[in-house]
Write a protein that binds this DNA or RNA. Sequence first.
DNA 1: AACCATCATATCAAATCGATATATCGAACG
DNA 2: CGTTCGATATATCGATTTGATATGATGGTT
Lengths: 206, 206
Amino acid sequence: MVRMLDIAILGLLMDRDHHGYEIRTQVRDRLGVSANISFGSIYPALNRLERRGFVEAVIATEARGNALSTGSLSGERASLRALRATPGLGRRSRKVYRITPRGREEFVTLLADPATLDDSRSFSLRMALAKYLTPSLRVVLLERRRIDLVERLTEMQSSARNEQLDTYARSVMAHAVKGVELDLEWIDNLLSTERSNQQSFAPEAK
Amino acid sequence: MVRMLDIAILGLLMDRDHHGYEIRTQVRDRLGVSANISFGSIYPALNRLERRGFVEAVIATEARGNALSTGSLSGERASLRALRATPGLGRRSRKVYRITPRGREEFVTLLADPATLDDSRSFSLRMALAKYLTPSLRVVLLERRRIDLVERLTEMQSSARNEQLDTYARSVMAHAVKGVELDLEWIDNLLSTERSNQQSFAPEAK
DNA sequence: AACCATCATATCAAATCGATATATCGAACG
DNA sequence: CGTTCGATATATCGATTTGATATGATGGTT
């Protein structure tokens, strides 16, 4: 969860530039994250990434009548101020972010990072961006996730068998079990696709 | 999500007393929450609930030989002092919490609260504790959740049809769609059970 | 022209997480 | 017999995330 947002933002910027508000919708529509990320997360995260040099703000293209007066937006870390304190800047200017070369490096590192891939959300996020991974790394991630899920499945199955639970609690557990089973089917499909693709490149490998 | 932990803790204490560490495991095993709640959440939450008078700490039963003599443990922080400065309490004492009458009131209020039942986790949590709700409130919650899910389903189906997505992103979306469909089946089963139970109490109602 | 939904950025307090520190206890191992 | 290991147990810290709220622009509708 820690770096979920960093991965999501950088992953979206790998493709093309985005502004904050747009990232929020894209995380839902392209990365499959069910809950909307709050603005209180996204703007601080963008500032964080900018400070670290992984993204940079470029003033919105598609300029409308603005007259921005003096080119005073070269202010270093006063990137916010440049926009806010400028009196002549009307409209709702969009702050468009672009990923830097260092950001691209950071992204692939984070994406393949062995740490914290346990929860369902961060795994789905990684898979949604899996085209940026090498085939072998994809398989590693999938297999590790598979192991976690199998373990969790047996745990939950025994919980679901607990006879001290009332009807509702047991129903919740049984439903959760089905969810994990669905996840496992998905993983297995992805794994077999991955392996058949590998074969097509090295069919003679015994 | 905001009060998820409060609901979870109070819900567990409705049944019997618990200490912090135990609550963590029970949230997984009895309430079906897949991720382990961190200690950094649970102990502050218990203090919070204690301050508000919804729970009270009772010294661990099952007392063992202690004798600790003088309270030389140099309590520094306030919250520690309560227990540690108490002389006579030795070992790794477990701080067992009990729910108060006001806590029971608060619990049913939170559980039936119309706010923030949108996300999957908080809904599952509520259902796991649904035996404390009236049948009609259960139906209200279920129906509202159903509406949300149907809406989300159509959104995600159109996302999954987006041809600009690569194979992996589309696979994630398709999998997410299946998850929501599974949720919907579950809700519908619960709803029909709920309604057939209602009928048995009022079979003549046309 | 008034209204409202959507777009867009931003900030704040409170909640939560992940890591870490500390300590007890029982079991396993040699 | 010692010691190491894993599970039990409480607590705190900094960083991250949420949910709420403020503010304003833009565009469509009646």
